[in-house]
Amino acid sequence: MPLTLPVDIDSIKGFLAQDEGETLYQLAAEVAKLGPVLEVGSYCGKSTLYLGSACKLHNNTLFAVDHHRGSEEHQPGEQYHDPELFDAGAGLMDSFRSLRHTLRSADLEQNVVPVVSPSEIAARHWQTPLGMVFIDGGHSEAAAQTDYQSWAKHVVSGGILAIHDIFPNPADGGQAPYNIWKRALNSGLFEALPTVNTLGILRRR
């Protein structure tokens, strides 16, 4: 049975494939009893819609962490720059208004807590155990490693660590997300589950 979302997913800017989004929804529903969900890299809310809708259905909470100034590839002159998300007054990218619009349109404001902050700062005093962490922040090696270091340790036993844009072949895409997927697997703390498109999935032992 096709997944029904509260708003048209194609109306939300983002780079998440449908099969990846539906898998995130299913995973978030599966871990609802283990603890809240946290995503790194909300952008305009495409993944937030999937994860937040699953959390709402199961009376859970999604923490949506993003500084909303765009990753490296979103900056002016870069491949994925979107002029509609550029705040000319500040001279900076700003996707937060689009995220808020997504949450309001989907009636998710009671289940999604936006955390407008760089990942490492948001994690500095974090103590809440998490049923699931989805990492889709900056794709530089430094950013990806920081996201992993900041959040993977908070996933509870039986919980899920999901990482977007896994490309084992360097010819297909950047290697930073794949490197932290391998780091998680090599840690012995996680076991790999089948990958869906470019969505790497691991379960905490």
Rank of each mutant, 00 (worst) to 15 (best):
L130M: 14
R104S: 09
T146Q: 03
N169K: 15
T198S: 06
G173R: 05
F190A: 12
G91H: 03
R204L: 02
M132W: 00
A176Q: 11
H164C: 01
G91W: 03
Q145A: 06
I135H: 02
E191G: 01
E191D: 10
G200K: 15
I160N: 10
T198V: 04
T128Q: 10
M132L: 13
F167I: 02
A176G: 05
G173W: 11
P168T: 09
D107T: 11
N179E: 11
K182D: 02
G174R: 04
W151A: 12
N179K: 12
D94H: 03
R100A: 06
A176V: 09
S119Q: 13
W126H: 05
Q127G: 08
T128C: 06
R104E: 09
G173C: 05
D136W: 02
S105K: 11
A144S: 03
G158T: 05
N197C: 00
L193V: 05
G131E: 07
A144V: 05
S157P: 13
D136A: 08
R204P: 15
S150P: 04
D165L: 05
F96G: 11
V156R: 12
W126Q: 02
S117A: 15
L199T: 08
L193A: 04
E191V: 06
I201C: 06
Y178S: 02
G200S: 06
N169C: 00
L199S: 08
R203G: 04
D136P: 04
Q127T: 04
Q145G: 04
T198Y: 03
V112L: 14
P177V: 01
L130T: 11
Y178C: 01
L199I: 01
T198D: 02
H125C: 11
I166Y: 09
L189V: 14
P118V: 13
H139E: 11
S119T: 09
H164W: 01
A162V: 12
V133K: 07
G188V: 02
H154M: 14
H125I: 10
N179L: 03
R203D: 01
T198E: 09
R183P: 07
A106I: 10
L130W: 08
P194K: 08
P168W: 03
Q110W: 02
D147F: 08
V133H: 10
H154A: 15
D165M: 01
R124Y: 00
L130A: 11
A123I: 10
A184M: 06
Q145P: 04
G173F: 00
L189I: 03
S105G: 02
A162N: 09
D94S: 06
I166E: 07
P194F: 07
E120T: 07
D107Q: 11
E141V: 15
I163G: 13
G89H: 14
P118M: 07
D147S: 11
A122R: 14
I180W: 04
G89K: 15
Y178N: 13
P118D: 12
F134C: 07
P194D: 02
E191A: 00
D147H: 12
R183I: 06
L185W: 09
G137H: 06
M132Y: 07
D172V: 08
P114G: 14
A122I: 15
I135E: 15
R104T: 02
N169D: 12
H125Q: 12
H139Q: 03
T102H: 05
N111P: 08
A106R: 02
W126A: 07
G131K: 13
P170V: 00
D172K: 12
N111S: 15
R100P: 08
S150M: 07
G138W: 01
P194I: 06
I201R: 10
F190M: 01
Y148V: 11
L108S: 05
